[in-house]
Amino acid sequence: MRSTIVLLAGFAITVAAPAVALQQADVRAELITRGAPQGFADRVATIVAAAGEAGLPTAPLSSKALEGWAKRGRVPPERVLVVLGDLANRLEAGRDITVEAGLDPPPGSVVAAAAEALGRGMTAEDVAAILDAAPTRDVAATGLTVAASLAAQGLDRAAAVRAVREASGEGRPPEEVLEFPSAVANLLAQGVPMADVARRILEGGGLPLPSTPGVGGGRPSTVPATKGLPPGRGRRPINP
């Protein structure tokens, strides 16, 4: 029985301790499996391990490393390492902003979303503003992701931040906020000028009217949308 307890304890220690090492080993092994040179894989693993030891989420780094290697025909390995270093710096900045916003310990999902938002040109103040308005960490992570996406879609950065903040303030759940980019895409596809898209988002506080689950990116409304975002374009639903 004593041996059993010792074995169980050793097993638990072995499993629980090295989350970081697990990630490190995963990305290194995956890179080598895909034909990457061992030296390159080792350097990637070192960057990932350092980030993990600093308390940063490592999944974004692993994903970016695999992306860089997948695009190796046009991206030299040295460039991949530089990009990983930049991403690690943004993760660190995102973590600091998250902690300053009162989320301590900082959730990995929020830190990753903050880093992605910073990488798309959003400022630390933008990120902090979204975090301040978010009542939960899920809303915070989703808000950052959606705001960054809206900005990437061409929406004015301040308008994107304001739309997400107002949605948070109104208590909209993350699953509704995630529909903003689809709705904006539908408006743009219909030829609505970006200025009008921004206006309708802000007037409508993000998405417009209560409605039934629908198709396309947004949710079709039973009332013509005079402001806010429009319904979807009526595509065939796959998973309504």
Binding site: R74, V75, I238
Partner: peptide, 26 residues
């Protein structure tokens, strides 16, 4: 795609935001 973003390697990635309630792409 919903958007195209810099991939950090000098190229562009497509972005899709998936909502839980019936996102459909075409």
């Amino acid at each position: 795609a919903h958007a195209q973003v810099d991939d950090g390697f000098g190229q562009r990635n497509s972005v899709i935001i998936v909502a839980p309630r019936g996102v459909v792409r075409s």
